[in-house]
């Protein structure tokens, strides 16, 4: 074999190793977290972990339900507040806004998607928490699901707006021209033709936003209060539940990680597994929806 040939072969092997290393990191992270969480699943039991309402590591009680409820409610709140605004913003930018607005706004939205979450958390702590505290409601201290939902809503706004805008813009112009030629108004064209055609892209924007909301950590620790309790309405009407303090799955890991030893530590890894599974469920549900839509929605 020539020298060149040897180098060629050697580099192939080196690159293969790099590929394998990257892949093995994925596998390693998965296996490691699973292995560390096994004692918790084994000793506490999967069902007890998922349905237990008490999380008192000192007393050997490890129930994740309050954190699952916290993560779920805060994500729900963020989606309710942020999603309509974000989608409207995406549609506005793609179809309605004049070019000069688009030129200015699009890069700034991309910029906002990159702002560190701790900055949003800081804003929440300094501005939102005292503002929410003004609401006269028993037990309200400002920290809680409402503040956290608003922070998250602002955080996922740019992500959803920019991804859905790209999805809407990528609908071929022929669709639009066809609809207009058939006598639709522009709004009818958007609603009946463009949005259905962009459905899968919009859905993936929503999923990205959901993932970001479920996975957010630092901003949540700063504003949600971190109390280990099932969110309650504190005796008031149902929306009052958003004034309740709570803790997210991510916050549970971050706040207790460095304190934990033994089974407690393993239970935190189990928290990570639960979080991971939740996100995988959201992702695959979206993927399933998308493939159905691609088949059904596109001519």
């Amino acid at each position: 074999m020539t020298r060149k040939g040897i180098i060629d072969e050697a580099m192939r092997v080196v690159l293969l190793c790099a590929g394998l290393a990257s892949l093995s990191i994925v596998v390693l992270i998965g296996l490691f977290i699973l292995r560390e969480s096994l004692p918790a699943f084994h000793e506490i039991g999967v069902w007890n972990l998922l349905s237990g309402k008490e999380w008192r590591p000192g007393q050997g009680q490890f129930g994740l339900l309050p954190m699952i409820a916290g993560s779920g409610l805060v994500t729900l709140g963020a989606i309710c507040l942020g999603l309509p605004l974000a989608l409207c913003c995406g549609i506005f930018l793609a179809e309605i806004a004049p070019t000069w607005i688009r030129v200015v706004v699009r890069p700034s939205i991309e910029l906002l998607a990159g702002i560190p979450s701790v900055v949003y958390g800081l804003f929440g702590l300094v501005v939102l928490v005292p503002a929410v505290r003004q609401i006269d409601y028993p037990g309200n201290a400002g920290f809680g699901l409402l503040s956290a939902s608003i922070v998250l809503a602002v955080m996922i706004l740019p992500t959803i707006a920019s991804v859905s805008e790209v999805a809407i813009r990528s609908v071929p112009d022929e669709y639009r021209q066809g609809a207009l030629a058939l006598g639709s108004t522009r709004w009818e064209m958007i609603r009946r033709v463009v949005l259905p055609a962009a459905r899968s892209g919009i859905l993936s924007a929503v999923v990205l936003g959901l993932g970001r909301a479920l996975g957010e950590t630092i901003a949540m620790i700063m504003v949600i209060g971190n109390s280990v309790m099932m969110p309650t309405t504190m005796g008031g009407p149902l929306p009052g539940i958003f004034l309740s303090r709570a803790r997210t799955l991510t916050g549970n890991i971050a706040v207790e990680m460095s304190y934990a030893t033994g089974l407690h530590s393993s239970a935190l890894f189990a928290t990570g597994v639960v979080l991971f599974v939740l996100i995988m469920i959201v992702n695959s549900a979206a993927r399933a929806l998308m493939s159905r839509n691609v088949r059904g929605g596109r001519p």
Binding site: P66, G139, S227
Partner: peptide, 11 residues
């Protein structure tokens, strides 16, 4: 006794 679950917890 146990500290109430409603407490704001800070790290």
């Amino acid at each position: 006794a146990l500290i109430s679950g409603a407490a704001v917890l800070q790290p």
